[in-house]
Design a protein around this nucleic acid. Structure first.
Lengths: 347, 347
DNA sequence: CTGTTAGCGCCTTCAC
DNA sequence: GTGAAGGCGCTAACAG
């Protein structure tokens, strides 16, 4: 007879708990507490008959092992932090859905953090540490010392569409440079010469990459584009097009937006405000391949990120590093797919 | 000198942990472990000087209290489960962003679960229990016995845009019935007589509510609409309009879609495929007020859900119930706002 | 294969 | 205001 105290009466248990502990189950099943523990652990040696007896008792009591007690001892919490800077970006919901489903399938729970602004990162880190997450997937711009904090604590992280600047960090990215090059090359081949670029905020890593790539490849053809800085949202596309039209005196052949939301805003503005036929009078391209880009009213010419493969890679890389600490940082770069659409004349 | 073992050397600590424990901090600060515990608990009585000494030592060691050990004892995990059935629905990212930010501000972390299909709910519940969440916010269709499992375990839940069928449950909803009534009344007043409805999947609670309300109010005017069943996505809107045009022989005055995504699909189809002028030849209305609905190319006539107030209400109600168990179930119903847009002629 | 014995790191009495 | 025990529920060695 175990001496430990059993959970007090009440079938439902106290507030916040199911009430039943492994001792309760052990007593009901007529075995020791550690037998119960084994029954709920994969790969533990236990007689099938005993296990079954235990499981029956457990079900009767509504018993589920307490992850907090387990985590305290195993130092594995099965928790993965997922950090996304601005969820309302059209692109992230799809990523988040993929990540949670794949992590779930691998036995991990998602602890979600969303930031209203990148300045909240330090604050957020303080909220993560107490939960001893096994790892993290981060789609926000971490500073070197923030990456180092993860490294120092031995918590593997995967940067999503970002790379570490100085501190080494594993990452999964869509190849902005080659995607943008593809777009520019095609636009040039179709004879466009007067370009405008609607860029993203300067604190966006992919935004700057895309901008740089576009400028570089235009420069190689001797072209200097007009540039407008937006905020990655639909409205910025509208404002951007107006600004570019003004700056260029209305003489524009093509507009390159560094994400789809802005490209769509620019399309609506071009048609609605300037009464331009797209792509006959103006070509517009985006980047990402979000849902609305393929909608009938837009059929945007853009680069589609292979979201599923990227999410899969991020999760796989993370799990690897959780199970085998100390792996070297690896960067995986996925090529995007050119969706021809109907918003631009390509060569 | 405390006899308890201090964490073993390595500054970074072992895998998964920051290494430092309250004993390490206590030793460095020259106080007892329980003093450290007090320093990190709000409202514990401790001398300001002692506290400061401890905090300095803690920072030096990178110490953060272990939430797992704390949760084990206090039975408060500060974890809230958020369950969302299909994240890719345009409407949810905004909700999720609001929820996580507000929960964070209240000292709670979000454990996110997303479902590929409603049939996975039981499976998911089994993943939730071990984590002893303090509460849950659920935007998925729970069966009565699933709600009861939460009730039995004493875990408060808030249903989001759903209500319990038999089992009592607190909930936050947008008033589908009155929103749809408003739309129908306006459409009738403007002289529309031949209606089509693009409805959602039958397992959607709000979808059925909106459909029922629209039919009822049309019936009151002696009108029997054509009905098509879609899946709440953009593509369903396209298919829906085709089906309705066929069923009605092209004689349609207005189309009511039970969410925005389908309404937008129908708009593009009406313009692109049937070459109809909207709203002159055909009025189309939606429901939700998602971002793209306000875009220049659409300017959809719809009902906007007060997402921020609803999220705020959900979080507040949940926190109340966590701090004061046993509160009665309350249902809060928020009215939507009619966005006139330009996709329908209203009376 | 099963039971026993120590803790995991912290909070919570209780003396002082 | 502070320190010394005891235990939250479980897993990880061990014996048997």
């Amino acid at each position: 007879m175990p001496k430990k105290k059993l959970s007090e009466a009440v079938p439902g248990g106290g507030p916040g708990g199911s009430g039943a502990t492994s001792y309760d189950v052990a007593e009901l099943a007529g075995v020791s507490q550690s037998a119960v523990s084994r029954a709920f652990r994969t790969g533990a040696s236990i007689a099938p008959k005993t296990r079954e007896k235990i499981m029956r008792a457990a079900k009767q009591l509504g018993y589920q092992p307490n992850a907090f007690a387990r985590g305290l001892i195993t130092r594995r919490t099965n928790l993965v932090a997922v950090v996304i800077s601005n969820l309302t970006n059209l692109y992230y919901p799809e990523v988040l859905a993929e990540l949670t489903q794949r992590l779930s399938a691998q036995g991990h729970r998602v602890l979600l953090f969303s930031l209203a602004s990148e300045s909240e990162i330090d604050e957020m880190l303080g909220l993560i540490w107490p939960y001893r997450v096994d790892g993290a997937i981060i789609a926000a711009r971490l500073k070197d010392d923030q990456i180092r904090q993860f490294n120092d604590r031995g918590i593997p992280i995967i940067l999503y569409n970002r790379v570490g600047e100085g501190e080494p960090a594993a990452s999964v990215c869509c190849d902005s440079a080659s995607g943008e090059r593809e777009l520019v090359r095609n636009l040039l081949a179709a004879g466009h010469r007067r370009f405008g670029i609607i860029a993203g905020p300067q604190d966006s890593y992919v935004g700057e990459e895309r901008l740089d790539s576009a400028r570089r490849h235009l420069a190689a053809a001797g072209i200097e584009p007009f540039i407008y800085r937006g905020g990655f949202d639909y409205h910025s596309g509208d404002e951007g097009l107006r600004a570019l039209m003004e700056a260029s005196g209305g003489a524009l052949d093509a507009v390159i937006a560094t994400n789809d939301a802005m490209a769509l805003g620019a399309m609506d503005c071009a048609r609605g405000v300037y009464d331009l036929a797209i792509p006959q009078q103006l070509s517009i391209v985006g980047f990402d391949g979000v849902g609305p880009a393929t909608w009938g009213g837009y059929q945007l010419t853009t680069i589609r990120q292979p979201v599923r493969r990227m999410a899969e890679a991020a999760v796989d890389m993370l799990i690897e590093r959780i199970e085998q600490p100390g792996m070297i940082p690896e960067q995986r770069l996925f090529g995007g797919e050119l969706l021809p659409g109907r918003s631009a004349r390509l060569g």
